[in-house]
């Protein structure tokens, strides 16, 4: 990337604390902690084991749920995208479940699942699952028929066509779904941790609220933001590695 663009991008990140500083200085938002107060709270948290435990807990929950979601949604999406019968059997039911807000699942899952850990993971899974599923379906449907025909005329059976043509051809769409899914996994995770409680960054932020520790709330928010951005970067890195034959949009 050229230097100019790097500078502009750095400016975009730096603008946030500057605006924030101005807001607190001018007293526009009452009760908003100053950047310095948050910074010192950050330092405090930095040396607390509890904080790092929360970070680790949340990260593991997101990664595990995300990987499981991808492992289920990608094959399912490819099958739905390619086989009308399979689509008719499964897709209407999935479309009915999709609009249910993740938090609505929590009371039910806490009652039904043996551990609140599982119910948090479940709604995190849902966050990643649907975007990956829908994009995979779209990707599988968009495969140009002549690619499959070429493969068949070269001797590929239906499984081989799936593996060598349908799947790689759908990959850019699958990756788009993974990037969106990773974001929603974090959204759902934090909601789940706030409601189900116990551990994690969502819980940390929520308990800071109940104890009235304003700077710690902001520390929680920033940490979630940073981890979310890192996870998205990880997905992009993976996508670029997986399809080296094609540049992935980085914007």
């Amino acid at each position: 990337m050229e230097t100019r663009r790097r500078l502009v991008r750095a400016g975009s990140v730096l603008a946030v604390p500057i605006l924030w500083f101005l807001l607190t200085r001018l007293g526009i938002v009452a009760g908003l902690p100053t950047p310095t107060a948050v910074a010192s709270s950050f330092l405090e948290e930095f040396y607390r084991q509890d904080f790092w435990l929360s970070v680790a807990r949340s990260t593991v929950r997101v990664l595990v749920s995300f990987v499981v979601a991808a492992a289920v949604a990608i094959p399912l999406g490819l099958l739905i995208g390619r086989y009308t019968v399979f689509a008719d059997l499964t897709f209407p039911a999935l479309e009915m479940l999709r609009p249910i807000p993740p938090i609505a699942w929590i009371p039910f899952t806490i009652l039904v699942l043996p551990a609140s850990e599982l119910s948090i993971m479940f709604i995190t899974f849902l966050g990643a699952f649907f975007p990956i599923l829908l994009n995979t379906i779209q990707g599988a449907r968009g495969v140009e028929v002549e690619f499959s025909r070429a493969a068949q005329s070269l001797g590929a059976g239906s499984f081989q066509t799936f593996r060598h043509v349908i799947y790689p051809s759908a990959l850019p769409a699958i990756h788009a779904g993974m990037i969106v899914g990773m974001g929603l996994a974090w959204v759902n995770l934090i909601a789940g941790e706030m409601v189900a409680g116990g551990t994690g960054l969502g819980f940390l932020t929520w308990s800071a609220y109940t104890s009235g520790s304003y700077p710690t709330i902001i520390v929680g928010i920033i940490t979630i933001g940073v981890l979310g951005a890192l996870s998205s970067a990880l997905v992009r890195l993976f996508a670029n590695w997986q399809i080296g034959w094609r540049e992935v949009e980085s914007a």
Binding site: Q152, S153, G155, H164, P168, R246
Partner: peptide, 28 residues
Amino acid sequence: GPDPKRGVVFQDNRLFPWKTIQENVEFG
């Protein structure tokens, strides 16, 4: 149905973009 004994060349080639030239040639 399609058969490897009947090879097809398409108007705009249908090389697999996700495979290298050698992988494309070795696909059959």
